[in-house]
Simulated scan of single mutants.
Amino acid sequence: MTRDLRSPLPLSTSPEYYLRLARKGAAARGQLLVERYRPSDVRLEEYLRLLYGAVIFNTPALDLEPHVLSLVVRTEDQRALDNVDRLFNLLDRAALAFASLDGPTHTERLITYANHVEHTGALRSHPLHQFADMQVSNALRSHRISSDVMRAVGFPRAAAVDLLTAVVRHAEALPPAPPALNREAIYRGPDGSHYVIDSYTSRGLLVLLRPVSQDPDTREWKQPRDRSTVEVPEDTVRQYTVVPREPLADPRITRLGTLVRDLLAAYETAAGHPLGSAKEIRAALAAVEAIPGETRARQYSAWSAGNRNGYSRGRRRR
């Protein structure tokens, strides 16, 4: 039966299961939609996987990276499902456009996609593409439906267009999602305390914040030794003030910079004009003041590279 596209899609009664499918990305997008809205329609599920595979094969940029998906499935509620639909909206629209092509063009593009899958090992081993050649072949092969009639099974295009149209309209009717919190930022609470985001909890939209304080000499933000955390609702964190990180400093270089600037100012006051080389001196001073930050960046890069290569705390990982 065709769904009334003017009515909203029903809310999910088990978002946890559907979000587990959502974490699998485009490979399970068709299964997610069919199980939510058209249970037990195996042909429609297989055809949707073909559509998503063909679309991503032609436009790889539409595929979603796992870390992008992880940002919207932190919780297990209807709001997370809505965020998934927003995130997949471009891919759903592209699949809808593909399913709406005229018959010959639609079939020709699916055959081209299936041929590439058949002759490309990387595609044949990918969960989204691995059965495409077989599914297209089975759908286009003529089968005997009676003693004297042979007919191809074809594709459930009308059902796919119906479902994808409803899903696209649902996603486009949703209010805009709030921007993701910046995990690299420093947040100042209403009491003047400062925090960094530690992680997200599994019990709804709560954020674990770790208190930090700034060293006035080096400008470095440090965490307390007990590494304590506090739970704060995500909407509350959005009301905190974001404090920009200042470049790291070395007290000795900072003192030198203060003295040099004072000397340049004193010369300009006494002579009535700036020192001829003042611009070059200030540029050289700025380069020296950047040394602490550059040193920290090199140290972090070396630590990160060593960690990737299997070294941790001086011992080779086994």
Score class of each variant (00 low, 15 high):
5 L>G: 09
5 L>H: 14
5 L>K: 11
6 R>H: 14
6 R>N: 14
6 R>K: 14
7 S>A: 13
7 S>W: 06
7 S>E: 09
7 S>R: 14
9 L>K: 06
9 L>N: 04
10 P>M: 08
12 S>W: 00
12 S>I: 05
12 S>H: 00
14 S>W: 07
14 S>G: 12
15 P>C: 09
15 P>R: 09
15 P>H: 09
15 P>N: 10
16 E>N: 13
17 Y>N: 07
17 Y>K: 12
17 Y>A: 12
18 Y>T: 07
18 Y>R: 02
19 L>I: 07
19 L>G: 00
20 R>M: 10
20 R>P: 04
20 R>C: 09
20 R>Q: 15
21 L>T: 06
21 L>C: 07
22 A>C: 03
23 R>E: 13
23 R>W: 10
23 R>Y: 08
23 R>P: 04
23 R>G: 12
24 K>D: 13
25 G>D: 00
25 G>C: 05
25 G>M: 00
26 A>D: 05
27 A>P: 04
28 A>S: 15
29 R>D: 11
29 R>L: 15
29 R>K: 11
29 R>H: 12
30 G>I: 01
31 Q>Y: 08
32 L>S: 02
32 L>N: 03
33 L>M: 08
33 L>I: 03
34 V>A: 05
34 V>S: 03
34 V>Y: 00
35 E>G: 07
35 E>R: 10
36 R>W: 08
36 R>F: 05
37 Y>L: 10
37 Y>Q: 00
37 Y>C: 01
37 Y>N: 07
37 Y>M: 07
37 Y>E: 07
37 Y>R: 00
39 P>G: 06
39 P>T: 00
39 P>C: 06
40 S>A: 15
40 S>T: 11
41 D>M: 08
42 V>L: 13
43 R>P: 07
44 L>S: 01
45 E>K: 10
46 E>H: 12
47 Y>A: 00
48 L>F: 08
48 L>N: 07
48 L>W: 02
49 R>V: 06
50 L>N: 06
50 L>E: 03
51 L>A: 11
51 L>Q: 06
52 Y>D: 09
52 Y>Q: 06
53 G>F: 06
53 G>Q: 05
53 G>H: 04
54 A>K: 08
54 A>S: 13
55 V>W: 02
55 V>A: 11
56 I>F: 07
57 F>H: 11
57 F>P: 01
58 N>D: 13
58 N>S: 15
59 T>G: 14
